[in-house]
């Protein structure tokens, strides 16, 4: 049924467009035919995707939906961002009812083996960590033998803790509390010594205490959570997503942001070859645009309408937000600063 429908739209759009680019696949064509890109985010994830007073999703993850719409349709506001629960969003993408998902999905082997989903670009490297009261005088998670640990009931956090303490031969006692209020209350009141969750969640939850300065996040990160964009499989669409993300990373390392992009464009001939290759009229990106079926100025539109990676990170999660994440201290720092964000060459 779905394949039939997308076949029809694919045929229709290739008839309208005349000469369809060689790589363009059914998903890319569907986005252009609808003139809208359906992107799934988590319904409530502070900092990552939360609806604003107009009901429009804002946040770190929501901005990657806008990135895709800016690159493919030339207009970030054409991203149709919808909040859907975790397992439903995977099914919706596999069933072909959405084009992509930007919702903190950890890329794992078994998930990647599913043929209905394509993992594209890791936008955020998270990991599970521990938070303790400063008064406990603990500097490393290795000193936690015998401690009580609060964690969300039913989550993979429980498994990671069991694995970690088991591998170190350390004992612990778990407080697996489902209700978030009760869980945080238990930690802030000293019912448990340690609070375990994803590091970003730890720094967000710490803000809910009356005295956030009384709690420290320990340096150990006990699990790898590469949170990755997922797409419905389509080579052109995947390439467009991947390279849009690379444009944001490259802009980040070249010091280009939505604030100064117009100024840079006005004196492009004085800029370095790397900048010219990204934004020039006859450059690597225009060549890619022709092959992938994107607007010629897609790289400019991504940076102008959404911003560089660092800009998006700081806007939603940075030091001026309730999260107070300092990007340089996370694995999401630029590769040159010892992080994992490594810009691929655009040429």
């Amino acid at each position: 049924m779905t394949t039939f429908k997308s076949l029809v739209t694919a045929t229709a759009s290739s008839l309208v467009l005349g000469a369809a680019p060689a790589l363009a696949g059914p998903v890319m064509d569907d986005i252009k035919a609808k003139d809208s890109l359906i992107c799934l985010v988590s319904p409530t994830a502070p900092g990552f995707s939360v609806p604003d007073s107009q009901g429009v999703f804002q946040g770190f993850n929501a901005d990657f939906c806008r990135m895709a719409a800016a690159a493919i349709l030339g207009d970030a506001s054409k991203a149709d961002i919808r909040g859907v629960g975790f397992s439903d969003s995977m099914k919706t993408i596999v069933a072909g009812e959405a084009h992509m998902g930007s919702r903190s999905i950890t890329r794992t082997g078994t998930r990647d083996a599913d043929e209905g989903l394509a993992f594209v670009a890791t936008t955020f490297f998270d990991g599970q960590g521990f938070m303790v009261p400063r008064s406990l005088g603990v500097a490393s998670a290795a000193e936690l033998d015998g401690a009580s640990v609060c964690a969300e009931d039913g989550s993979t956090t429980l498994l990671n803790i069991a694995d970690w303490f088991g591998a170190k031969g350390m004992s612990y006692r778990v407080e697996n509390i489902a209700d978030k209020t009760a869980r945080l209350e238990a930690f802030f009141s000293g019912k448990c010594d340690v609070y375990a969750s994803d590091v970003t969640a730890l720094s967000a939850d710490r803000q809910l205490s009356d005295t956030p300065g009384d709690f420290v996040i320990l340096p150990e990160v006990i699990s790898n959570e590469p949170l990755t964009l997922v797409a419905r499989p389509d080579q052109a669409f995947e390439a467009a997503l991947f390279w849009s993300f690379q444009v944001m990373l490259n802009a980040d390392s070249l010091g280009i942001s939505s604030a100064n992009i117009d100024e840079i464009m006005s004196q492009l001939d004085q800029k370095t070859p790397a900048v010219q290759r990204m934004f020039g009229a006859d450059s690597a990106t225009t060549d890619m645009a022709a092959k992938l079926g994107l607007p010629a100025d897609w790289a400019y539109q991504v940076v102008k309408q959404v911003g560089s990676y660092g800009e998006v990170f700081d806007r939603h999660l940075g030091a001026d937000t309730p999260f107070g994440l300092v990007r340089a201290t996370t694995p999401n720092a630029h590769a040159a600063d010892g992080g994992l964000m490594y810009p691929f060459p655009i040429r």
Binding site: D153, G154, S155, N176, A178, A182, R183
Partner: peptide, 19 residues
């Protein structure tokens, strides 16, 4: 009891389903 971290049948069953 699941809300306040008592490992009853419901809590165990929920964790098993998630995994």
């Amino acid at each position: 009891a699941i809300a306040v971290g008592y490992s009853d049948l419901m809590s165990v069953s929920g964790t098993i389903i998630n995994q």
